[in-house]
Design a protein around this nucleic acid. Structure first.
Lengths: 95, 95
DNA sequence: TATATATTTAGACAAATATCTAAATGTCGC
DNA sequence: GCGACATTTAGATATTTGTCTAAATATATA
């Protein structure tokens, strides 16, 4: 897995906001963009970074391109982050 | 909490390696630096970024400055990351 | 106090990044 | 096919970032 790509993708606040926005379900690029004061081109750039990290999936639906979270990666991401610290997150110490 | 500072700090591979290195316990700046082909000045810059994110603590011990992980933040960090995804990491789902 | 060691700070510079505008590509409805 | 809409790609630019060297600060020890 491209650990660097994931961390880099999460480093930008706009991209994190995009991920949050997708929590409600899949959205077209344009629908996502409505929440941000940013050009479609810049937005597209962020999508590319998120895709490269495999954090989102895309599907063309007619005229639109629909983005959705790749939640199957979630556990891996959690592991990647927690791996940076000596013990697990739960009180019991997950190991 | 400075979410942006944390994500930014984790985005650099050298800084992640520093965190890993500290898992074994506190180390002086110089001891940490031995693992990297980087000048002390650059290393110090990375420490500053990690400190700003509150990921590490420092303590002067005589001539040395000793760094250690701030593991109390771990849960917060895990939450910050998992917050970007719709459901929790454990098989049981949301926590 | 003087010297050596450890670390940080200041300043410069190259590479990476986020943004924009303009143009290209892809799809739909007429 | 043509025009309208949605999205991406290309190219330019300004900002941020990681790195360096040189100088400054702090501590230890002779």
């Amino acid at each position: 897995m491209k650990q660097q790509a994931v961390f880099r993708a999460l480093a930008d606040p706009t991209r994190r906001a995009i991920l949050k926005r997708l929590q409600g379900g899949a959205l077209s690029a344009g629908d996502i963009g409505e929440a941000f004061e940013i050009t479609p081109a810049s937005l597209s750039h962020h999508f590319a970074v998120l895709k490269q990290a495999d954090l989102v999936r895309t599907e063309r639906r007619g005229q639109y391109i629909v983005y959705s979270l790749n939640s199957t990666l979630m556990e891996d991401i959690a592991r990647m982050v927690l791996d940076l610290f000596p013990i697990g997150p739960s009180k019991g110490g997950k190991r």
